[in-house]
């Protein structure tokens, strides 16, 4: 059953339109990829979904409920969390303070302890650095913190905007292994990546977003086919 659905979404800034009718779906436990070049509108798409960028048309459904136009602080409580581009952790606050802030978005306050324990199992390094200033963590640790901070809200849908940004290949693999585990636990995971190959092999479906439109959708099998991938990514015009 479809847990999360974006239908014909339009968005932009001021006089500029950026997204021209974007659709996508994700079911429980699915991992979905979105790839595309710089400026394609990937971050704008996520911003519109979570309510930080105004929508100009279309709708977003979470478990059948229309959440379009709601405020960010309400959307997270409905079970949709975003790990924003560039991580955006609070560098001046400690690791545990960052995680505590993540608890703000929970629907049920009873599960707080359990949520923190789950984070401990998934990202033990955050527990060892519990009281350190978050800004002093390495890039990989900061990315783990950003993911953990979103996870403690127990999202049903988790959006990640370029989680590989600025990380070395081994750290990237580490982070993606956790994301697979998170999806396997039942969360729908949607990952935006500029480096397409990172997600195409893992994702159930990978959408190619270019110039504000979904240009193509690839399955895992398609993605294994280099030629097909390149054609989808760069368009058939032979750019």
């Amino acid at each position: 059953m479809t847990l999360f659905e974006v239908k014909d979404l339009r968005a932009g800034y001021g006089k500029v339109d950026v997204l021209f009718g974007v659709s996508l779906t994700a079911s429980k436990g699915e991992l979905i990829g979105i790839v595309g070049p710089n400026g394609a509108g990937k971050s704008t798409l996520f911003g519109a979904i979570v309510g930080t960028v105004g929508m100009r048309g279309g709708s977003v459904f979470l478990d059948g409920e229309d959440i379009s136009g709601k405020r960010p602080e309400d959307i997270v409580r409905l079970g949709l969390s975003l790990v924003p581009e560039g991580r955006q952790i609070f560098g001046g606050l400690s690791v545990i303070e960052n995680l505590t802030l993540g608890l703000t978005g929970r629907r049920d306050k009873h599960g707080e302890k359990g949520a923190l324990e789950r984070v401990h199992d998934l990202f033990p390094v955050l527990t060892t650095h519990r009281d350190h200033q978050a800004g002093m963590l390495s890039g990989g640790q900061q990315q783990q913190l950003a993911i953990a901070r979103a996870l403690v809200a127990d999202p049903r849908v988790l959006l990640l905007d370029e989680p590989s940004l600025g990380l070395s290949p081994t750290v990237v693999k580490d982070v993606f292994d956790r994301l697979i585990a998170i999806a396997e636990s039942g969360t729908a995971v949607v990952i935006v990546e500029q480096r397409a190959h990172l997600v195409t092999r893992l994702a159930e479906r990978t959408h190619v977003l270019r110039a504000g439109k979904m240009q193509a959708t690839l399955t895992k099998e398609d993605a294994a086919d280099e030629a097909k991938l390149a054609a989808a990514y760069f368009g058939n015009s032979g750019e």
Partner: peptide
């Protein structure tokens, strides 16, 4: 908790809202 939210919002209000801080 209120103080933590005040500090977080002072440094980055948008991210604080993403986490559920009621503006």
């Amino acid at each position: 908790k209120l103080g933590l939210q005040l500090r977080a919002a002072a440094s980055d209000f948008q991210t604080a809202r993403l986490l559920g801080v009621r503006s």
